[in-house]
Amino acid sequence: MNKQKTAILTDTCCNVPEAYAKKYDMYVIPLKVIYKDREYLDGVDITPEEVYESLSKEIPKSSLPDGEAILSIFDKIKADGYENVIAITLSSGLSGTNNMIHLLSKDYEGLNFFILDTKNISIGGGFHAIQAGRYLEDGMSFENICEKLQNEVYKCKVFFVVETLEYLQKGGRIGLVASLFGNALNLKPIISCNDEGIYYTVAKVRGRKQSISKTIELALKLAGDHKRYNVAIMNGAAKELAADIKKEILPKLPNVDIFIEEQVTPVLGVHTGPGTIGIGVQILED
């Protein structure tokens, strides 16, 4: 346990790699993947591959964790001797998880909570959890970490492109992304989260190859000449493409602090489908 007696709580859709979750003793709340006749815990008893393999038969739904599961994790944190909790969740504009934690923490005795709405998805939230761990490791106080994390919310962005908008549409997560792109024109949107944490179209280009190139361009532009930044390449059943992108962009990113290459969780895979590529950039220093 750290000297600050501060625990980090996050959810599976923040996509924190297991190595970092273990390093900083994070507590992780799994969301749910729900089929007609069964349900699974995100990344616990179902894999992304299993989700993709079953999409032709049934597109499952996703759900936020139930209150009992969240309270159980609160109890575990308290039993482990912690006094403070930094809870970091995916965007409240995409899930009710953040609000659920807010509601349950209000009446929970024995723990002091700070709940960060990352306004982001996947590693865009996970980077904040990792940074919280690093700040604790550096001995920063609970209060200072909370202030720093809040100020850093808009210094992190994920640009992603999907093979098809079908899954975002069926999952009701289309946000401000125009749902009707001309198939004849083969227009592909590059998607991110806006300041309210809702999906929107950053750019639209013609064709898959061009959409990947534009996503790379946007990520490199965001990193720019900043002195330090974290970078991640996320994929949904597109590991080879992610590896190719890594070879292309890393030489152009001389100031990378942390680099992460990871597959999105099953719940995120439900909403984005196979072939998804995302590039996340978190600015650490201007």
Rank of each mutant, 00 (worst) to 15 (best):
V267D: 03
L71K: 15
Y199C: 08
E53M: 13
Q282E: 06
L253M: 13
I191Q: 09
K227V: 12
K157F: 09
L176A: 06
K119L: 14
D45A: 00
G269W: 10
I121D: 08
R206A: 15
I258G: 05
S192G: 02
K148F: 10
I191A: 07
K221Y: 10
L284A: 10
A178M: 01
G126A: 01
S91D: 09
I216C: 12
N255G: 07
E83G: 11
L41F: 15
A242R: 12
D37V: 03
L9V: 05
E147D: 13
I245Y: 07
L9W: 04
S72D: 15
K155M: 14
H271T: 00
D244K: 15
I258D: 10
E18G: 02
Y20G: 00
H102Q: 14
I191Y: 06
V162Q: 02
I190G: 08
I73C: 10
R208G: 07
A7T: 02
E39C: 03
L250F: 03
V267F: 08
P30K: 01
K22D: 05
K214T: 08
R206D: 09
K61N: 04
R173A: 11
K247W: 03
D25Q: 07
E285L: 14
K239D: 13
E262D: 12
I245H: 05
V16P: 07
N144T: 03
F114V: 07
I190D: 05
I8Q: 10
L90D: 01
S62P: 02
G207R: 02
M1E: 03
I73Q: 08
N235R: 04
Q131I: 05
P65M: 14
K214Q: 12
D138G: 00
Y154I: 05
C156R: 14
I88C: 03
L168K: 05
D42E: 08
G197D: 08
T265K: 11
E109I: 06
K32A: 08
V162E: 01
